[in-house]
Nucleic acid binder design. Structure first.
Length: 506
RNA sequence: CGGGAAGUAGCGCAGCCUGGUAGCGCGCUUGUUUCGGGAGCAAGAGGCCAGGGGUUCAAAUCCCCUCUUCCCGACCA
């Protein structure tokens, strides 16, 4: 590596964003590629981040009355066939288990032997198998609502994969609820979207736009799909959460019926909603800089690394003691529902140590040497500032201020992400301007361009697909707080009364 | 699945055109000197060159096939 390089990641975001992303994942020590196509190994540093998100979300779900449960990985093929739109949407990306036994083959290797009477689909999502359970659990309106969530892995055999953003197997949560009334189900759909918005903005420090999908972007089988969309630093959109109102479609497919107060047999109204490990990709692309990832403090794998500096053995004893005491003091502090997570890195490897932690995105780095002990202070670097911008702070002050410092970093990340989005969101009413906005100056080597175009859309699928065909730009959502005004469709010019978000997307 | 690029040590690469059985930088290990710090010196560990087949006395190198990864599309959380 070039010793004179000031930045830890090569290439920079500006030079080659996709390659920058790959390097950040690798150098942050969050994940490895797996021997299996399209899959990933989530390493402890990445998994800790996911666990923190899981704990927070789990508590948020439960506070709305949701209970956790677990449903099988394998879904009978016949279940998937029950909802016609659902099959169509997922059929192409299903992994299918057809055999249940391996035997020595003629050429020596193991070959599948026992053919299953009915092939099993590895869940791409669990509406159908959970629906089957719901149909057994629910007989009366008194059984409703039923509010279930499961933390699970799912498999979608994607054409093209990208670590965290689109892997063949990923971790997620899927919430599934059944209600006696349409209104209650719709309310739940919006409630969970609001919950996701709060989580992503308040904890991941990523600003989002809430809205509903156009019919062509809907979850297969849903009546309405709501989403939150975030802008990454390459100005592309990332859907970071979805909530679906499924109407009675899945209830009819799975026979989820109940007797109402009026003793009438009715189909239940269901919803489903989820977020996934894709959020980690979102954190990387929303907050990362040319030195690697920056972890939002509220969900960071760890908050602080203490790096003792010593020359001689007697110094080492003193410095280590001071370090360990500081560590205990810090770990006694509470930060958003958990103790501060503190790492002590006493490897004697010079400055490399500091850069390792910068690349891992830890919010706070603390250097502790004899000089600091003498002054009863610590030498503090923040991940949201330049790597050389380090300050000596009195130890007591550091300990008492630490949660404030973390909050400052959290706020900085949100504000920076918000200003990227604000800067690259524009109202466009002219067709040529729209096409120019989404066309890179050099097609051979497209640099970062585009953003969110807030433009009018007449509502016709023809216009939506023409823009998609021409520019690979899609309607990310119809925002709830869409500017209500008369205008003309950016594509065909017919009248429209609201703007939608157009963008390239992951 | 289409169109491009590429697979050689943990990472980044050279060697391939003109076949002779593997090298560099970083990292890693040990020693030593440094010391507010992406260190200096010395010694060392680590690769059936993605896999399979072929041509040849001899293949990382030439030919064929397969797989994988990355980028751009179609599909998606």
């Amino acid at each position: 590596m070039d010793k004179k390089a000031v930045r830890a990641i090569s290439p920079t975001r500006e030079e080659d964003y996709p390659e920058w992303y790959q390097q950040v994942v690798k150098l942050s020590d969050m994940a490895d590629r797996s021997p299996v196509r399209g899959c990933m190994v989530i390493k402890p540093w990445g998994y800790a981040l996911w666990e923190n998100m899981v704990h927070i979300l789990d508590a948020m779900f439960k506070s709305t009355g949701v209970k956790n449960a677990y449903f099988p990985l394998f879904i009978p093929l016949s279940f998937l066939e029950k909802e016609s739109e659902h099959v169509e949407g997922f059929a192409k990306e299903c992994a299918v288990v057809t055999h249940h036994r391996l035997e020595k083959g003629e050429s020596g290797g193991l070959v599948p032997a026992g053919v299953l009477s009915e092939p099993l689909v590895v869940r791409p999502t669990s509406e159908t198998i959970i629906g089957d359970s719901f149909s057994k659990w629910i007989t009366s309106y008194r059984d409703l609502p039923i509010l279930i969530n499961q933390w699970a892995n799912v498999v979608r055999w994607e054409m093209r994969t990208r670590v965290f953003l689109r892997t063949s197997e990923f971790l997620w949560q899927e919430g599934h609820t059944a209600h006696a009334s349409k209104k209650e189900a719709i309310d739940r759909t919006y409630m969970m979207l609001d919950l996701y918005e709060k989580f992503v903005q308040d904890y991941l420090a990523i600003p989002v736009i809430k809205g509903s999908k156009t019919p062509s972007e809907r979850f297969p089988g849903a009546i309405d799909t709501l989403c939150i969309e975030a802008m990454m630093q390459d100005r592309k959109a990332l859907q970071v959460g979805t909530s679906h109102f499924l109407g009675q479609n899945f209830a009819k497919a799975s026979q989820i019926k109940f007797q109402s107060e009026d003793a009438i047999e009715e189909y239940a109204w269901t919803t489903s909603w989820g977020v996934s490990t894709r959020l980690i990709g979102g954190i990387i692309m929303a907050h990362g800089d040319d030195d690697g990832i920056i972890l939002p403090p509220k969900v960071a794998s760890s908050h602080i690394v203490l790096m003792p500096i010593f020359k001689k053995a007697d110094e080492k004893t003193k410095v280590m003691e001071y370090t360990e005491n500081l560590c205990k003091e810090l770990m006694d502090k509470n930060y958003f529902g958990r103790s501060l997570a503190v790492e002590i890195d006493s490897r004697e490897i010079g400055g490399t140590r500091g850069w390792d932690w910068i690349k891992k995105g830890i919010p706070i780095r603390v250097e502790i040497g004899m000089r600091d002990i003498k002054d009863n202070s610590v030498f503090v670097g923040r991940r949201d500032k330049d790597h050389k911008d380090k300050k000596s702070i009195r130890k007591e002050e550091f300990v008492s201020e630490i949660t404030n410092i973390l909050n400052e970093i959290q706020n900085t990340l949100f504000n920076n992400a918000l200003s990227v989005r604000t800067k690259n969101t524009i109202l466009i009413d002219d067709n040529k301007m729209f096409y120019d906005f989404f066309t890179p100056a050099n097609i051979e080597n497209p640099i970062i361009h585009g953003g969110f175009a807030m433009s009018h859309w007449c509502g016709n699928i023809e216009c939506e697909s023409k823009i998609k065909d021409d520019l690979s730009v899609t309607i990310r959502c119809i925002p709830f707080d869409s500017i209500k005004e008369k205008g003309n469709c950016i594509c065909c010019g017919s009248s429209s009364d609201r703007r939608v978000v157009f963008s390239k997307a992951y």
